[in-house]
């Protein structure tokens, strides 16, 4: 098949697009596909990811010997590689060893920093304080002084809470030591 744009090179990128309810197929060579650039990027997103996953399999052959099925929903890691969608929230735990290198690659990190649903058990006060300080800085920058005051009070409150908690832990340790 020959490229629809340059009509010279072999088409290796195949794209189906629905425009005004009409299906359009485009067959492009790599060069022309690249030139289409920004417009095509959204179509390539998933393909890139899947290619990335395939590569990863080659780089880390040992992953094949690890758990390959989610113990909650039963999704096979193979299916995830094919479709690019995980089965359920538990998949993250089941496939942790294989997902960690993937996340490092596509996200540059494996650890969430940021908000969490309220009422969850995480005490991450330190992270929350850091987060609030950034927001405080922004509020001051944007001259939103009411918001800044609110954030300042919240930081103070959290810092006090954290201080108390640390104090409590020290006390606890202290009493344990006395027992010994």
């Amino acid at each position: 098949m020959i490229c629809d744009i340059c009509h010279k090179k072999a088409a290796t990128v195949h794209l189906t697009e629905i425009v005004d309810d009409q299906m359009m197929e485009l067959h492009l060579c790599e060069e022309c596909a690249r030139e289409k650039g920004a417009q095509m990027e959204q179509h390539f997103g998933l393909a890139d990811l899947l290619a990335g996953l395939a590569d990863l399999g080659k780089q880390f052959p040992e992953t094949t010997s690890q758990i390959l099925e989610c113990n909650h929903c039963g999704l096979k890691y193979e299916d995830f590689k094919r479709i690019g969608r995980l089965g359920c929230g538990e998949c993250y735990e089941s496939f942790k060893k294989s997902l960690a290198p993937l996340l490092r690659r596509i996200q540059g990190s494996t650890r969430h920093i940021g908000k969490s649903p309220k009422g969850k058990k995480m005490p991450r006060t330190k992270l929350e304080i850091r987060e609030l300080k950034i927001r405080l800085k922004q509020a001051v920058e944007f001259e939103e002084f009411e918001e800044a005051a609110r954030l300042r009070d919240k930081i103070k409150e959290l810092e006090q809470k954290r201080g108390k908690k640390q104090g409590a832990t020290d006390e606890h340790r202290g009493s344990a030591e006395t027992k010994e």
């Binding site: 494996t110 920093i113 992270l127 987060e131």
Partner: peptide, 8 residues
């Protein structure tokens, strides 16, 4: 990127 950096 959506992981490893906070929303703000």
């Amino acid at each position: 990127v959506t992981l490893g950096r906070s929303e703000s």
